[in-house]
Design a protein around this nucleic acid. Structure first.
Lengths: 127, 127
DNA sequence: CTTGACCTTCCAGCAAGTGGAACCCCCATC
DNA sequence: GATGGGGGTTCCACTTGCTGGAAGGTCAAG
């Protein structure tokens, strides 16, 4: 399969797939004309990557997950550990954003938002 | 004031302050020995920037906010508009993360996380 | 034979800094 | 006078995860 078809099947832009080859996440073969040739297993891997990235796993997480995925003997604990770390990151990020949202939400509510210059938002930032 | 003191007062790393000068957010003077010299108004601006960044405003937002801040005649509506846009971005990000959190949370719960190789997390990613 | 859709490589850039190297400056101490 | 420490300066490279674009090779159709 050429990169365009793979892009369609895996739901990733061709550029991204080339990038993933660059950083060693997939190793497609090359045909005589220099085009990348992807096996079914590569397409599979790329779809896996797409889903893991959509869940917010970092590229390095993905690298580890792919390795664990290819190792039928690994303990599920290893996978769970990576996922739990990531869950922690997500939770911290949500907490941070929620706090920002609250603070900024109050400020926005208290601002008249009309033609007058008085603005509690700027006033608060300027404390 | 030299950059070190400013860093302490504004709560920003010196590196960041230099960067903010680079991109034109502050324009400190220079003294004879080449050191940056910050006026009280610069320190004030930097503290403003620190708070706006802590609320997640982008640098370009900060640039606009600073300009509005310096213009005593602007309408509060302009400030409110920037803040509301940002609020929207925060809300979308929170929604995205919350969805990720739910999906990944279910997967983590369903994974035994022991020495056995069966792992619903990998299974789901591999669909 | 040419057109258009593919594919290739490489280089640059995004956001918002951070780290490090190599070097200057100023004050205090020995 | 030398030296040591703690400032400061510049510039360059690196981070994450791609994305855009230029310049060019390949292939199938009309």
């Amino acid at each position: 399969m050429n990169i365009g078809d793979v892009a369609t099947h895996a739901g990733l832009p061709a550029k991204t797939i080339r990038y993933y080859e660059d950083i060693g996440l997939v190793q497609p073969k090359r045909s005589a004309n220099g085009y990348r040739t992807f096996r079914q297993s590569d397409v599979h891997k790329l779809a896996f990557l797409g889903r893991a990235r959509a869940l917010g796993f970092t590229i390095e997480d993905c690298r580890s997950l792919l390795k664990l995925y290819g190792d039928t003997d690994r303990a599920s604990a290893e996978v769970k550990h990576i996922a739990q770390e990531h869950l922690g990151r997500i939770d911290r990020k949500i907490a941070e954003l929620t706090e920002m949202r609250a603070t900024l939400g109050h400020l926005v509510e208290s601002c008249a938002g009309d033609h007058r210059p008085d603005c509690p938002i700027l006033a608060d930032l300027a404390i």
